[in-house]
Amino acid sequence: MSSRPDLGPDLGPKPRLGYTESRIARAADLRTDAARIAALEADARAGVYVMGGEMIVLKQGAANEPLFGVTEAAALGAATETVFLGLVDGQPRFGHSLTPAAAEALKTRGDLLVTDLRSIAVQGLVAAEHLPPMAEAKAVLHWHARHRYCSNCGTLSHAVDSGWRRDCPNCKTQHFPRTDPVVIMLAIDGDNCLLGRSPRFVPGMWSCLAGFVEPGEAIEDAVRRETLEEAGIVCGRVRYFASQPWPFPMSLMIGCFAEATSREITIDATELEGARWFSRDEAADMLLRRHKDGLTAPPPVAIAHHIVRAWVEGEAGFG
């Protein structure tokens, strides 16, 4: 239900934010215990998420089961890397990466569905509880695929600690997975909010502005800088809303509201094809997919949907 009925239509129950509310206990203390990890791999309850590049492998069916047994996963193809994700109610979970070509070849099998994680999330192809560990696996396995050589001396490194570190045998440098922080923000001016359109968006969709946090930069400063750079809008107060893991490829979306102190828009055409102010009623219609011009907000799996909805329902803290 809307927190302030005077603000507009009832948007219905709040959907779950994609890739969050993980049930995984990461059990980081087990990662360095090779004997214990081997025992977990031999556990009959162990479940494996299988992926190759951008593709995820599912058992095709009414529920599209994403978990394979250890033996089942091995039968799909040799793993380029395996990562221990953690425990769900004491049951081990692993990520198993195939080469992109091997994953692509599995598309010919009638008992499997091979598709990308974004489609899985948007279309609800698996139970929501699987999305966080799938995001975890995809991000870490992507890191392995892109960081096989030591950035210090160029030597081929090798995975250790159950996939959570790479060691260089030459210069002994240790490398750890990284997450890229990204601010995603809704600039607000009273009963209007600022949304933009990237050329990459599906037709008719408008969303919050976003950009990477730069070295030495606070979240609030990144919000103000990105809004100014992309749309020419100056902002003052910034308020944190929520965060979301975003495994495309390995980001953390940091959702914020920003109080606009200017109105005139000047877009950066290299980043956006458009930016404009939307009224609260328009934004509500976009969330409900009933805007008179066919415009839409991002789907519920994305944090941008939740940011816009929170503002429509009066939860931004200002505006």
Rank of each mutant, 00 (worst) to 15 (best):
F257C: 00
A137F: 03
E54R: 12
L288I: 05
V48H: 11
F176W: 14
S151Y: 00
T71D: 15
M250Y: 09
G274H: 12
D10Q: 06
A38M: 07
P169V: 11
L117E: 10
D268H: 13
A310V: 02
I233N: 05
C235R: 08
T296W: 04
C150D: 05
C150V: 03
A28Y: 01
G18F: 02
T266Y: 05
G95R: 05
G61M: 11
A302N: 15
D281L: 12
L17R: 13
E220L: 03
S279M: 09
E273M: 10
H305L: 06
E273Q: 13
K172H: 14
E259M: 06
M1C: 02
K172P: 00
P66Q: 10
A218H: 10
S243R: 06
M286I: 05
G211E: 02
H175K: 07
T99N: 00
I254S: 02
C256V: 08
H306I: 12
L98E: 11
V301A: 11
R263S: 15
E41M: 14
L117P: 08
A101D: 12
P181D: 12
L252P: 04
F318G: 05
S251H: 15
R31N: 00
A137I: 01
Q91N: 13
V183P: 01
T71L: 09
D285L: 02
E264V: 10
E129Q: 14
Y240S: 14
H291C: 09
R290L: 02
E226C: 04
V88Q: 11
R239W: 01
V308T: 15
A260G: 04
Y49F: 11
W164A: 04
T20N: 13
D29C: 01
G314D: 10
E21S: 12
R200M: 12
C153A: 11
G216K: 05
V308N: 06
V182H: 14
A63H: 11
L7D: 00
A35S: 15
T155Y: 01
A101I: 03
D268V: 10
C171T: 10
E65L: 08
A316L: 07
D111R: 01
L85T: 05
M286L: 09
T20R: 14
R4Q: 15
L288K: 13
R148H: 03
R237M: 08
G86L: 07
E264F: 08
H175P: 01
T82N: 06
L40Q: 05
T99Y: 08
Y49M: 03
H291W: 03
C153Y: 10
P298T: 14
P247Y: 08
Q60G: 13
A79K: 07
G236Y: 02
E313R: 09
I233R: 09
S262F: 01
V114G: 07
G319D: 03
T80A: 10
Y149R: 10
P9F: 04
D189W: 08
R197K: 15
T108K: 15
S97L: 06
P298E: 15
D116C: 03
A39N: 00
L106M: 11
G69S: 14
A103E: 06
E271W: 10
R31Y: 00
V126W: 00
I219G: 00
